[in-house]
Simulated assay, not measured.
Amino acid sequence: MTGPEHYLEAERLDRLADQWMDDDRGWKAHLSVEERLAYRKADQDAAQFHATMALAAATAIQPSQYGVNRGEAKAWIAACRTPAGDDK
């Protein structure tokens, strides 16, 4: 995975972790509070791992004599862009 991919995965897992306590549909409906908290914690831990990997990748960017590689910079810009309608 690239740094931007780790960043996006951390954001996805963070959103999933937030949904564990509120989702009473489908297979999640029968879970106890303790089970939901365990799943939420697992998603939070995985999100933290991916956020740490993204941070390591971001700090390891090696600029060329002309600046940061354009492809790498574009990937980070795309990953960090706020989705439309999510600017609360």
Rank of each mutant, 00 (worst) to 15 (best):
residue 22 D to P: 00
residue 36 R to E: 05
residue 40 R to I: 03
residue 49 F to A: 10
residue 55 L to P: 00
residue 45 D to G: 05
residue 88 K to W: 11
residue 44 Q to A: 07
residue 26 G to S: 08
residue 85 G to Q: 04
residue 85 G to F: 01
residue 57 A to I: 01
residue 78 A to P: 04
residue 83 P to I: 07
residue 8 L to T: 13
residue 1 M to Q: 07
residue 70 R to M: 08
residue 22 D to L: 11
residue 72 E to P: 04
residue 29 A to N: 02
residue 54 A to S: 02
residue 53 M to A: 10
residue 60 A to L: 02
residue 24 D to P: 03
residue 34 E to T: 13
residue 60 A to S: 13
residue 57 A to H: 08
residue 77 I to Y: 14
residue 39 Y to M: 11
residue 56 A to N: 09
residue 21 M to E: 15
residue 82 T to E: 11
residue 19 Q to W: 12
residue 74 K to P: 00
residue 61 I to L: 12
residue 2 T to C: 08
residue 56 A to R: 15
residue 80 C to E: 13
residue 46 A to W: 12
residue 10 A to H: 03
residue 79 A to I: 04
residue 56 A to M: 09
residue 31 L to K: 11
residue 12 R to A: 13
residue 75 A to Y: 05
residue 50 H to F: 06
residue 4 P to M: 10
residue 36 R to H: 05
residue 77 I to C: 05
residue 11 E to F: 00
residue 47 A to R: 00
residue 76 W to C: 04
residue 71 G to C: 03
residue 28 K to V: 06
residue 18 D to I: 01
residue 37 L to N: 13
residue 18 D to W: 02
residue 25 R to A: 15
residue 14 D to Y: 12
residue 30 H to D: 15
residue 76 W to S: 06
residue 8 L to Y: 00
residue 46 A to T: 08
residue 20 W to D: 06
residue 23 D to V: 14
residue 61 I to F: 00
residue 73 A to C: 06
residue 33 V to W: 09
residue 6 H to P: 07
residue 16 L to G: 00
